[in-house]
Nucleic acid binder design. Sequence first.
DNA 1: TTACTATGTCACCGTATAGTGACATTATTG
DNA 2: CAATAATGTCACTATACGGTGACATAGTAA
Lengths: 211, 211
Amino acid sequence: MTTPTETKGARDKEATRLRLLDAVGNLLAREGFGALGVNAVAREAGVDKVLIYRYFGGMDELLHAFGQSGDFWPSIAQVTGDDPSELMALPLGERWAKGLSRYARELRRRPVTKEILAWEQIEQNELTSILQQAREEWFEELMTHFPDDPDSTDADLATTVLLLVGAIHYFIVRSRLQADFSGVPIDTDEDWERLDQVIFTMCRRTLRPGD
Amino acid sequence: MTTPTETKGARDKEATRLRLLDAVGNLLAREGFGALGVNAVAREAGVDKVLIYRYFGGMDELLHAFGQSGDFWPSIAQVTGDDPSELMALPLGERWAKGLSRYARELRRRPVTKEILAWEQIEQNELTSILQQAREEWFEELMTHFPDDPDSTDADLATTVLLLVGAIHYFIVRSRLQADFSGVPIDTDEDWERLDQVIFTMCRRTLRPGD
DNA sequence: TTACTATGTCACCGTATAGTGACATTATTG
DNA sequence: CAATAATGTCACTATACGGTGACATAGTAA
């Protein structure tokens, strides 16, 4: 019953690398990015910090490796749902509302992703740039799954959606520390049901044809 | 030509206090909240750090005093404009769109406020809690200036507006480091004209009666 | 002048950080 | 078995931080 990540002192380079990568995730989720550093990660992994330099080159490279290793971004499938055709049957506004609701739910499930989203607002590093790139590709591909029928709306679709994505990010990042925003609760699942409802109305009314 | 804040070594408690408060603002605007600390502030003020403890009690109290001293939140008048009655003549959606546009412009003018908005997403302290309280009062009073006529809309007005406020905050905080968000530019005045336009459409179409 | 207080300077403590060089131990290969 | 390379431990530097005590100097009041 000794998995690699539990065995201590075993001379196993790969296991040690995994312990370090694991430690990054645990620290991020538990303490936030402010607590991240060579000393803290090494302590968390129960390993000497010199191995960070020896096996990865330094903190930046460790973060880069962690970024490659993780599942901290929702897949397109998680946003479209199991049956994409069902989503495609909806009008454009409802379609995006549903997608954004699922998107928010997936983000809220990922404590590490929340933390990186917060970090992204403060500084750029190996981890945040990976998340950024993932989001850009995600959004571009998502756009192809949610085609912009010219008959569906005359609104600036991409900007409208990204405004709502920004709002979702803001509320999610904020909810790490505070349960409300100027009186509007943003923390629990029930709170988000109401937020989803508001986003639904905004999408449905904004993303439609005519004026 | 020696204003108190320029004179060095002069034995003037009040001038020193002002130098310290000034240093906080300059550091925040120039280096961001990450650079803020007793050592950095004292260095910036050209003053010994012990005076922070002696005159304020510590960093927290200095931040508190700075928070009281500043003008880093838009006034209601700046959001409603010089002639509020002009605003009141507009339908609810247009009214809020105009107000949010002015709100965003005022925030973008205040580098220190941008920084505190970012800080607020990371941790709570004397400064962020002051900004938060100012925003809550601001929003409450703003709501009385933008009365929620039941005939105007059936949407959840407060939540809808605060979602857009959140989006604005997110873009403003982000624009400190990055000029775009997944391809949408969010930095220059022209960029914000387009964002204002999108917000305008969202407000006008969402905040109206019926379904 | 003398005594006292307010203001400011300086040197230090303990702690944490990022990073490095020397050493010990284990595994592997000849 | 002996030599070598890989893996891990330890001790150390240099730097920065928040915080404090001792001291110097200026202004004021007796």
